[in-house]
């Protein structure tokens, strides 16, 4: 038995963090947040050089064929540096098209229009008719410059369409570092349909949980560092138990979440039946722990935490968006209960 990361996995994460600390500095992120196209491209290029796109592609499609645990480590590093990236969409495309990897290779860039898997809304949603998709999908991810869209219909089907047939209108969220779109399709031909299954939604939720793990860890690190520097009443505030306990509570909540993500990802990778349950619970757990940490780390920074000067709010908002993405913690827990047959 060995419940730990392999040497390769640690190296993958460390080297990616190295790239991100150069290419996704807070200054860069600030530029991206105000829509600086050059900054977006520079970060994208750095991640392409790193080879992010090919990590999860099956070996047959020219990739490395890594698993979900590896993907979680990547997503965690991206969350730590609040870096926007196409990785989430391409990782989930690789999960959805595992049986049909032909579409994944080459210059394919996937966008993701799957919020309907978690929440169907009045006045939105996609429907399938005679092999064609029509309607509007909300909060699509990485839709800009996508060649293909992975889109969920109202009945849980998962389809690939050519992105050229889609009209994308920006949707502004609290998180300006990442872009979201309302994507409208009018009778766009379906190129391929993947089997919708528990595994896809579980993987989507798990990857978002991993992103929150990284962002929340960054917030703890920043809070602890700030508490070691900031002086009041003639001592560093980190020597006050009131502040120390806030930091200890953050660490005590987050650290088991890390092990839970590893366990859930491994279980999904080996096809363990408990995998989807664990992944849904990991999403809910990290959403709750992340929200607590986003608030508490901000409070440790006092008034400065509330300002734009420190930029802590970028992490706060990353965690806030992640909490709702692909379903709220309540929805993820409901899925976990359904998967176990505890409720209908």
């Amino acid at each position: 038995m060995e419940f730990s990361l392999s040497e390769d996995q640690r190296m993958l994460q460390d080297s990616l963090k190295g790239v991100l600390s150069q290419s996704a500095s807070l200054d860069q992120i600030r530029k991206i947040a105000v829509g600086d196209a050059g900054a977006v491209r520079a970060l994208e290029a750095a991640l392409e050089d790193f080879g992010l796109a090919s990590l999860l592609l099956p070996e047959a499609a020219g990739g490395l064929g890594l698993g979900l645990l590896d993907a979680c480590l990547v997503q965690e590093a991206l969350g730590y540096h609040i870096a926007p990236s196409r990785f989430l969409a391409s990782a989930l495309a690789a999960v959805a098209l595992a049986d049909n990897p032909g579409l994944l290779g080459g210059d394919a860039k996937f966008g993701l229009a799957v919020t309907e898997m978690a929440s169907r809304r009045d006045g939105a949603g996609l429907s399938l008719k005679a092999g064609k998709l029509s309607g509007t999908a909300l909060l699509a991810i990485s839709a800009e410059e996508a060649t293909h869209l992975l889109a969920a219909d109202a009945k849980g089907g998962l389809h690939v369409v050519d992105a050229a047939g889609a009209k994308a209108a920006p949707m502004q969220t609290i998180d300006r570092t990442r872009t979201f779109h309302a994507v409208t399709l009018s009778g766009v031909k379906v190129l391929s349909t993947a089997k919708a299954n528990d595994r896809f939604l579980a993987a989507a939720r798990l990857l978002v949980a991993a992103d929150t793990l990284g962002a929340a860890q960054a917030m703890i690190d920043k809070a602890v560092a700030y508490a070691a520097e900031r002086q009041q009443f003639g001592r560093v505030i980190g020597s006050f138990q009131a502040v120390k306990h806030m930091c200890a509570e953050m660490a005590a909540k987050l650290e088991p979440g890390r092990a839970l993500i590893w366990h859930a990802a491994h279980a999904l990778d080996i096809g363990d039946a408990e995998g989807p349950v664990m992944a849904n619970l990991a999403k809910a757990y990290l959403a709750e722990a992340g929200t607590f940490i986003a608030r508490t780390a901000t409070e440790v920074h006092g008034g400065m935490g509330f300002t734009d000067l420190v930029g802590l709010h970028y992490w706060f908002k990353r965690i806030g968006v992640n909490r709702q993405l692909f379903g709220s913690p309540e929805q993820a827990r409901q899925t976990a209960a359904q998967l176990q047959g505890l409720v209908a």
Partner: peptide
């Protein structure tokens, strides 16, 4: 268990139970 409020609380605890179990596996390693 059919009461959604109670079921939600049960799932919150299950997430923590799973997390502490995985944490235990990590410590054992």
């Amino acid at each position: 268990i059919a009461n959604p409020m109670l079921c939600d609380r049960l799932m919150q605890l299950q997430a923590e139970v799973y997390a502490m179990q995985a944490n235990g596996l990590r410590i054992t390693t």
